[in-house]
Design a binder for these strands. Structure first.
Lengths: 224, 224, 224, 224
DNA sequence: AATGAATGAGACTTCATTCAT
DNA sequence: CATGAATGAAGTCTCATTCAT
């Protein structure tokens, strides 16, 4: 830690004493992410967090009520960042439901929000979520919005095409499962399962569900 | 905890001083599962564990080198139990690859191994796995065996039927993702996503992949 | 201990929160000496040490890596103090080798460094030294320097006088033995063997070795 | 310890269940010496002791009131062994006071009682003696008897020869100091100071005190 | 605002002693 | 007599939080 702290200090100290309240909070939240990804929740202390932030121990209790609050804010920060990412991707895509659906799916594995570092933090929080309602609440808000959006896009596709046996909610649920499940596999087996694999498997799944709208990635490659 | 301890004591004390070494170890491992599911890893202490076991504090270090070892043995216990479950289900099923595949998939959500209690423990361990190689090793041994088995069954189905564009490894990876992802959803949203939902979604997925071999659950219901 | 703590607290608390790091370390080292002399090494705990220092339990691990390090620093503190004492005595004495030799010998039993309290601590450390290399290293550095100094003084005396059969190293070794052995006797039999006895016996030994340079204490007394 | 235990077990287990009470006590005392010499007093536990003895944990409390008593008996055992050794050496020597004095002095460093192993144990006990009266009592009984014997022999030599300025008690005290001090040096600096050195230095001292009775070791070597 | 020494509760672990077998 | 699992007090060490500066 000492070396890490020293390095971080040099980088962050420039913020100096004049940093605004909001900047400090963000600085501490990012240091928390850094620390949890390196040492896990059980190895993260006020010292490791402030070490990464290049600040002194006592400062956390000035900007956050306590450690628990810092964690909740960190989770909220990650959730907001995640939501912003797929919303942005959706807006940037063609306005057809199939393109927007693929855009959302791809966004789940965008490096800027799902680096291995952040994945570790997400699963650290999932590990605590079972018995911490405040975490579940933050997660569910994010998940629900995405589920509803995906549901709506599926509904549009189903209405357009001829998929009488396909229910929007079922596809959306399977997609949710794949998003989370693939993240875990990326985290656990970085050499065996990659972000690219995840995207391909999901595109395949969507192509099988909606063959008239979404191309199978292999065939697409052949044509391209 | 005191109340918990008192209750557990009454139940477990009968084991008395005569329990064999193996029985004690198992008793402590099951108490660890109990404790992690209730308080999480960060809230689990030697006191909560021995409290659930109805034994005295010092006993853990007599049967396990230290807390870390107790955790590893607990994870191994869960992994073995899980493996035994799907192997048993596979053997009990018809010897066709499609039936065995469905049996394995269903077994992933069998209540005896994936109660909400145990799910919480699994994700507690996933949360620490990112920076603890010993956990990853135990998990990967289990996962790899399942993946290879699923791969082989998919290969058999593909050879029999006419699925020229389907690769066994891709289906197996998607299934792995669904197994884990649905577990997380069951854990986080017990009221929104059930074990039954998970099984249905997976059966649907398999029916879409191998329409000549595996029936869509909805159609099946219509027929039945 | 509680009474001890209470008393010490009143005395030491004045240091308050403002004491410098170096002052705190010294305060803790002196409390360690106090505690070892009273309760021995096996009876000394973080609680007894901080009790004597009038500080709270957690502070030791803030200023020292761990208990073992605190002990090493304590031994080093004693060794430095001891070395400073005989060096000072040597400088204060007449610059003849015989006077310097006697000054060093007398300094070994100077009350400020070899109080019964400190003797107890020294022998506590000797007791552990057999299987703790770090202690032996600290002790040997101190002993070797003294041995070399004594050797050199003996050599000068031997060259001046006519002691053809006397080797400097032999006298120095015997003196080392007497220094340590008399200390043990003072420690074990405070009523039977005193600091004054030790000095007399050593002066006698030196007088027998170097009769032309150093007077026998009894004769000296007669003349005086 | 496990290896040690295993080895010791093979050797000692032959004593079996039929060993007499006295044999068991001795077996445990010797295991205590073994353990203290290897791990020090602070590293010696009931487990290490019974491990070296090849017996089970619970047995110590059957043969000794508690650990403290075991230690006292161990010290007494060493003291008796030591006393027996120099008494035997004295009886075996020529009946002249000078030969008996030399015999006693040599016996102090006899390998059978002052192996490095036992020295470590002696100093472990010295380290605790300062605040444990029961240890001091056992030690003082042994020391006093030796001091009185040495005193008496010195008195005889002084009466025979012409050493008007030499007092028996002074020589005896110096010898006591040398015995203990050299032991410490052998313990701390096994490569720098040997048993042979100790004997030579003491013989030199005696030769300087009683030149008409005891020969200087160097001169003796020349003649021989 | 910020610092970081200090606090003290509580975690893990050790180990002398007990006791059912 | 002997065993060794079990107990639980006590030890070392950690760390969230406080507070004088």
């Amino acid at each position: 830690m000492t070396e890490v702290t020293a390095k971080a200090a040099k980088t962050n100290r420039q913020a100096g004493r004049t940093a605004s309240k909001e900047v400090r909070r963000r600085q501490l939240i990012e240091a928390t992410i850094e620390s949890i990804s390196k040492f896990g929740i059980s190895g993260t202390t006020m010292t490791t967090v402030t070490g990464f932030a290049g600040l002194s121990m006592g400062i956390v209790n000035f900007h956050f009520k306590n450690k628990e609050t810092l964690y909740e804010e960190t989770l909220r920060y990650l959730a907001n960042e995640h939501r912003a990412q797929w919303r942005k991707a959706m807006k940037a895509a063609d306005p057809t439901p199939q393109d927007q659906l693929v855009a959302i799916a791809d966004a789940q594995f965008h490096p800027s929000i799902y680096s291995r570092k952040k994945l570790a933090v997400w699963f650290a929080f999932y590990g605590e979520a079972a018995y911490r309602a405040s975490y579940r609440k933050i997660m569910s808000e994010m998940d629900e919005e995405r589920w509803l959006t995906v549901c709506d896009l599926c509904r549009q596709i189903i209405e357009q095409g001829k998929y009488p046996n396909t229910k929007p909610g079922d596809v959306a649920s399977t997609l949710e499962g794949l998003f989370d499940g693939f993240c875990l596999n990326i985290l656990l087996y970085p050499d065996g399962f990659s972000r690219k694999d995840a995207r391909s498997r999901i595109r395949e799944y969507l192509a099988t569900c909606f063959p008239n709208h979404i191309q199978h990635p292999a065939q697409k490659a052949c044509q391209g």
